[in-house]
Amino acid sequence: MADRKQHFFARLIQMSMKQSYALKASFWMRLVFMIVSDLIMMIGWYVMFESFQTINGWNFNDFMFMSGLNISAFSIWTLFFRGAGIRMSQWIQNGEFDYFLLSPQNVLFHASCCVSEPSGWGDFVAGIGLMIASGLITVSTFGIVVILFICAVLCFLSVNFFLTAINFYFKNTVDLTERLFYVFFSICGYPGSIYTDWAKILLITIFPAGLISILPIEVLKNTQGFTLLYLSGASITLFFGSILFFYRGLKKYESGNRTILRG
């Protein structure tokens, strides 16, 4: 039975990608421009680090790794789970979620995996490239980096699931939840060392951008076992918590009658 489910989701992801590649010129343009955009951003930060050398103990390599982790985890969401977030929020708000409820598959993952954003490949290449270029991936840290990557992906998914589910509980919140997600993503893009005291506590608990931007570098630089344990536990808790929150909200779903087509 488990194999069959994997089969469905493998095919679903394949189809959502195929649909996104239907316009080939657009696909290549978005991929290339995403890499260029990520590199331009890094040039800006390089100039900054050239002037200040370190920011609260972080050097440019630390920042490169953090950005690479952030961008590559983000790319997993855009490539495989792009339905979660703004698209799903719109479906919920407009009452267009019926199709997923009528399918004998997991509603949340079905809706999440049916959209793929081709620019994600650009982010993925740039993100992995940055992590390698940072020099922080070695044979001894490789296993930890994989765990950090999985945790970062779980965080992005959790935040998206959570923000999407808000649309079940409150009406007309698509713009708000979209903005909140980009605030989260923006915070993840700054060097984690700038956040101290209460801001740091806030970011590793309630608004968990710090699980991507602060803790991974602390784990790598100081080889902190407890921090890695906290990070893994928090990411998993957040992930399952967001799924629970989503399914509770689903009971409040109100279907609509707009004429719609798939894709």
């Binding site: 069959r4 469905f8 095919r11 239907a22 267009e96 009528l102 004998p104 719609i260 798939r262 894709g263």
Partner: peptide, 27 residues
Amino acid sequence: VVFGQRSQLWYHLPVRDSVFLLAAAYD
């Protein structure tokens, strides 16, 4: 279930792809 105003077929892809996806959904 068929809703006259809703589609379960993927807009940009051939009918075949949607059929195979539905087949996978129903094992």
